[in-house]
């Protein structure tokens, strides 16, 4: 087995995310090829790359929405989705994986709000039913978070009556309600009309400035340049190069990065 036991390394004290040699196959397709990276506390990592490069898949592996075939992923020093038994990694029980996911917030391209719940109920559902928070406390938390994304006046609205940008901001509030240590953004603005992208990016920027550890898969190069601490370029399932946004964008070291950037920045 290519699985390797993961030592609780001392370096993990500041690294929130540690990926080591992550491999994943979809049938015959090798979608992640020995992907290794770390994300430090409070860091905002941007992942760019053409579609099909594996960046979304990598994000989904981080909270075990996808299984990995070998390698290891840790968040705050805890193995995600697997546990080490006699030096081998075995998949965890669903219940334990659910518990791990509480610390990892995720925002999806298509929002995925619960359509039968109001904006406030979307935000409070997990605190009440997963953490056992009292309804009144959860509502207070929910209203605070909705205010933070500028939508406290929409608390009683159902997702079907909100614009795409508003829905995505509610989705961010929903993820924040679990007080996650890490936030994952999977092309959070790709499904939005152009005039709504700004309002969602603004919320993400604020979050970054408050020190949230974030991994952002995006095509918004302006956002990456402005608030990204580091950019990782992925192609065909592996990391091509990484660097500071300003360096990587102005002076890409790799031909594939150069051609990708030339297509996306007009």
């Amino acid at each position: 087995m290519p699985f390797q036991p993961v030592p609780g390394s001392a370096a993990a004290s500041t690294a929130v995310v540690e990926a080591r040699d992550v491999d994943k196959w979809f049938g015959d397709l090798h979608v992640l090829q020995k992907v290794s990276l770390t994300v430090g506390l409070g860091e905002l990592l941007v992942i760019i790359g053409p579609s099909g490069s594996g960046k979304s898949t990598f994000l989904r592996c981080l909270n075990h929405l996808e299984k990995i075939d070998s390698g290891s992923l840790t968040v705050n020093g805890h193995l995600i989705g697997y546990r080490s038994r006699n030096g081998k990694l075995v998949e965890d029980r669903e219940r334990r994986i659910s518990a791990q996911r509480r610390d990892i917030g995720m925002v999806f391209q298509r929002f995925n709000l619960f359509p039968h719940m109001t904006a406030l109920e979307n935000v409070t559902a997990a605190p009440v039913h997963v953490l056992g928070m009292k309804r009144a406390d959860a509502n207070e938390l929910g209203m605070t978070l909705l205010a933070r994304v500028g939508l406290h006046h929409k608390a009683a609205s159902y997702p079907g009556h909100l614009s795409g940008g508003q829905q995505q901001r509610v989705a961010i509030a929903r993820a924040l309600a679990m007080k996650p240590a890490l936030m994952l953004f999977d092309e959070a603005t790709s499904a939005l009309d152009p005039e709504m992208i700004g309002e969602v990016l603004d919320v993400m920027k604020e979050l970054a400035q408050e020190g949230m550890t974030m991994i952002v898969v995006t095509h918004e190069m302006g956002f990456a340049r402005e608030v990204g601490d580091r950019v990782v370029m992925m192609d065909a399932g592996s990391i091509v190069e990484e660097g500071k946004p300003a360096d990587l964008f102005s002076n890409p070291g790799h031909e594939r990065t150069r051609s990708f950037l030339s297509k996306i920045i007009h």
């Binding site: 669903e94 509480r102 999806f108 619960f114």
Partner: peptide
Amino acid sequence: DRGQWEAAKSVGMAPWT
């Protein structure tokens, strides 16, 4: 929609919840 399952999982809901 599969996205509903994924969103619920991502906020830590167990399968039965």
